[in-house]
Design a protein around this nucleic acid. Structure first.
Lengths: 329, 329
DNA sequence: CGACCTCATGACATCGATGTCATGAGGATC
DNA sequence: GATCCTCATGACATCGATGTCATGAGGTCG
């Protein structure tokens, strides 16, 4: 691989002049410039990104850490982040954290060591206070899930409203025994969804029954187990609210043949093609990713600004049929 | 951020000794070692990854470029690559190329400039011969789609066999007018799927009708348009073979109410929950990603070995009901 | 014609970690 | 006690690009 040194030698100038040509410094005579350009072409010069970023003191990558890349919601977020960054010539270092909260810290630390431009994070653990020392050097933007034990830029959906709308809609169909099914209830976003669920019940004068809350329903097997448990109740649910798209997908086979209404938080591919089509709270992962990337890049330029309160993106209820509504055509 | 220099000063040794301690060089006296370790702890020393990789001349990242991260197949591949790499402390630079073949080269060149450890690539363009100069420095492993105009390590599924099995199965159900629907037919993998389809027809003495081949069926709208076109034929298909999972998903709404058998190449989430559940050729994206990462890392250690012929991973037909088979339980 | 200015170019240092070689203390061996 | 060895440690150079400052050629103005 040719270096600036090599190009300089060939063009009969100093390396610094090659650097100037490469960086389009106007203080280079046209003759010199073209000689250098010729030399670059002949040697097929490619700048050494490692050297440049080292000198600059900052890598040209942004980190993106999400629970699971295969979850279409996070895949969309990542793709959106990536497409914003690629416009600026910034690459994206992607990591799936996985379901194990204990893995979060080591995974993120290994990411953060590489002097990222910024980190976009949807955490799985229950506490991120240890991140504060890293946050001094690297702007961190939380998406989908607010940080715990740390102040930082945050972009979330309107979890509370979404859950409220969904639950209220089910109540409107006459259901009073509505299950709330989640994988974990720790994350603030899930907690806010639970709040919305409870608020809707309260507003309609339906009492909250904690037996109707199911956790750990991740994976089809565990989802089925939780459903069995719910249905062993003397008064089993007649409707179910699922707290995220992964859970909804895992829940559907278990719900087959139970004649139960269903609304899920988070849209997913083919939701409209199932029988019945699944009513969902629609989020906008693309917008979320876009905003997060923009925010992270802006933070990098001006890291002094104080963190605003969490930005809340709107959600909407997409009525299909699983909630009990009739086919619309 | 503290540097080795700072630590050295505090511990009263030379930077080189700090480096030795950090790298667990045995030639350091225990006393010196612990003084240095104390200093590191006190200053909260974190190595500068940029400097290390610069000196090493190679980044500690591997590149992964796929057409679309949101496609669950590629998401699985990426996640598998990532989980292999994270064991070795290698990070993954992920890029979605998108559907536009013209974007491929610039996107990849920007990735390759960062002195990757290796590149794992599922290309969308029709020619990758320009990659040969990069391949001299960076091991490239093709996944899912073989390279065109370039010799390189390649991991593909048994496209031909998968398509053969699927088509043969549909023929076995008595269908003779079987549509072949794809997004693009350029990629070698799609071409081999078409070959398998034709081979199965030929073996059963059914003549190939090019009118039954639909392209550009990406996105629900275009998929619907292609379906309309197929059904304007005087003898419309009674069965359809879809050449990949994305197309299958886009095709399903368009096929509704047409009473047509369907087999898709590639499994996808909820395929078994649709009505009818979709029969598919199952690939193993996780294994594909795992092997690709392993191969790329091995190549890096020993770049001299010659490329073996493409490794072909087995596929299998997962019978559900959309092919015409009865429910199994 | 001399003082001053502009501007192209280069020499050198720098970013942080580490490979190479030198140095010198302490010990082993005859 | 002289020679050689072992081994801890440090000085210095290096990876490639680029910021800083110096230099010196050519031009302008009084």
């Amino acid at each position: 691989m040719a270096t600036m040194q090599d190009v300089a030698l060939r063009a009969g100038v100093s390396p610094k002049t090659v650097s100037r040509v490469f960086n389009e410094d106007p203080h280079v005579l046209p003759g010199t410039r073209s000689r250098v350009e010729d030399a670059m072409r002949e040697l097929n010069y490619v700048p050494n990104v490692l050297a440049r970023t080292f000198r600059a003191g900052r890598s040209s990558s942004i980190g993106v850490a999400v629970p699971d890349l295969v979850d279409p919601f996070f895949a969309s977020v990542v793709r959106a982040v990536e497409s914003v960054c690629s416009l600026t010539g910034i690459t994206t270092l992607v990591t799936s954290i996985g379901d194990d909260p204990a893995r979060e810290r080591p995974v993120l630390e290994s990411l953060l060591r590489s002097q990222l431009r910024g980190l976009i994070l949807a955490p799985v653990s229950e506490d991120q206070s240890w991140l504060s020392q890293w946050a001094e050097h690297t702007p961190i933007v939380f998406v989908d899930r607010a940080p715990v034990g740390l102040g930082a830029d945050t972009l979330v959906e309107d979890d509370r409203l979404g859950a409220y709308l969904a639950t209220d809609h089910l109540l409107g169909h006459g259901h009073t025994r509505i299950g709330f099914v989640a994988d974990t209830t720790h994350p603030p976003s899930t907690r806010r969804r639970l709040e919305g669920y409870r608020a809707a019940l309260a507003d309609k004068g339906v009492s909250f029954d904690e037996h109707l809350v199911a956790e750990e329903a991740n994976g089809r097997q565990r989802a089925a187990a939780e459903v069995d448990r719910l249905w062993r109740d003397p008064e089993p649910p007649t409707a179910v609210f699922s707290s995220n798209a992964r859970v909804t997908m895992d829940l559907i086979p278990a719900l087959r043949g139970r004649n139960v209404a269903l609304v899920g938080f988070g849209d997913f591919q083919m939701a409209d093609q199932l029988s019945p089509p699944v009513t969902v709270v629609r989020q906008d992962p693309v917008e979320l990713g876009r905003l997060a990337a923009t925010r992270a890049l802006a933070r990098f330029a001006d890291s002094d600004g104080r963190h605003e309160p969490a930005t809340v993106l709107p959600v909407s209820l997409v009525l299909r049929e699983s909630c009990g509504c009739a086919a619309s055509g």
